[in-house]
Amino acid sequence: MPSTKAIVRMEEDPIEIDTGKVTIVPGTMTEPQCATFCLQDEDHTLGNAVRWTLMKNPEVDFASYSIPHPSEARTNIRVQTSDKTTAVDAVFKGLDDLTDICSHVIQSFQAELAKGEFEYEEETAL
């Protein structure tokens, strides 16, 4: 019985949408306070920034990221936390914090644009 969400077209196999962007590396979650997450199709762009927000969290004892192999598009993030939280919650919060930082950059950037206190040139004179 195919899943009700999948749309079956003609006689082809139903198109599977791969949402497996995050996995926990097998065997790394020996307790809920530690885990290594594997992010598919991510690189230093996200890895380094998420590592930083994780390390900012006082409940996080250890956070690091690595790209195990240069020809595989995946990033591993290792997190170890205190007993007050879990690795999954810590990463969730880390992502949340980074989202807030991004919103703040956008707000600040738009405020600056609106203020217009900078050198401005619409069209280069030809």
């Binding site: 927000t53 900012k56 969290n57 006082p58 914090d97 807030d100 930082i101 703040h104 950059v105 600040s108 950037f109 600056e112 644009l113 206190e117 900078f118 050198e119 401005y120 040139e121 619409e122 069209e123 280069t124």
Partner: peptide, 19 residues
């Protein structure tokens, strides 16, 4: 803003041209 980042990032635009 998050609790540990004293106010969050600031942007200051110096110049803006067509491209």
């Amino acid at each position: 803003m998050d609790m540990y980042n004293n106010g969050g990032p600031e942007v200051s635009i110096r110049s803006l041209k067509k491209d």
